[in-house]
Amino acid sequence: TTYKLILNGKTLKGETTTEAVDAETAERVFKEYAKKNGVDGEWTYDDATKTFTVTE
């Protein structure tokens, strides 16, 4: 399944996708990605669109 991440950081904005077996796995991948890019904020997930959003 393809999951999407929307980054709404103070200095970094953008989108990325990952293939994962479930939302929990995708969330771990995306949180590591955000951490590596210095983005830390509020996380939300929309199951209907398989989209995570992190907003600083």
Rank of each mutant, 00 (worst) to 15 (best):
D40P: 04
A34E: 01
K50V: 03
Y3K: 00
F52E: 00
G41D: 02
E42L: 10
V54M: 05
K4Q: 06
A34S: 05
K36Q: 11
Y3M: 01
T18H: 07
Y45R: 02
K31S: 05
Y3R: 00
L12K: 13
D22C: 05
L12A: 10
V21R: 07
E19Y: 11
T17Q: 11
I6W: 04
D40C: 10
T2N: 07
E56A: 08
G38W: 05
Y45E: 00
T44Y: 10
Y33A: 03
T25C: 06
Y33D: 02
T18Q: 06
E27P: 00
Y33G: 02
W43A: 01
D47P: 12
W43P: 01
V21S: 14
A34H: 01
F30H: 01
E27T: 04
G38L: 07
K36I: 14
T17I: 10
W43F: 04
Y33S: 02
F30N: 00
A34P: 00
D46H: 05
G9T: 12
L12F: 15
K13L: 07
Y45V: 02
R28P: 03
T2R: 11
L7G: 02
K31T: 05
A26K: 00
K50M: 09
K31Y: 07
K36A: 11
G38Q: 08
T51W: 02
D22Y: 04
E19K: 07
E27K: 10
E56Y: 08
D47A: 10
E32V: 06
T51Y: 03
K10C: 11
N37Q: 14
T51V: 08
A48M: 12
T16P: 02
V54G: 01
E24V: 13
T44Q: 12
T53P: 00
K10N: 09
V29L: 12
T16M: 11
D22P: 01
V54Q: 01
D22F: 04
T51N: 02
F52L: 01
K13D: 05
A23P: 15
T51H: 03
E32Q: 10
E56C: 05
N8G: 04
T53M: 10
L7D: 02
G38N: 14
K50Y: 10
Y45A: 01
K50D: 03
T18Y: 14
Y45P: 00
N37R: 12
F52N: 00
T49S: 12
K10S: 13
A26M: 01
K4P: 01
T44V: 10
K31C: 05
Y33H: 05
E42Y: 11
D47T: 13
A48Q: 15
E32L: 11
E15T: 11
K4D: 02
D22A: 04
A48R: 08
F52V: 01
E42I: 15
D46P: 00
T1W: 11
G41Q: 02
G9R: 04
T16L: 15
T2I: 15
K36R: 14
I6M: 06
T53S: 07
A34D: 00
Y45N: 01
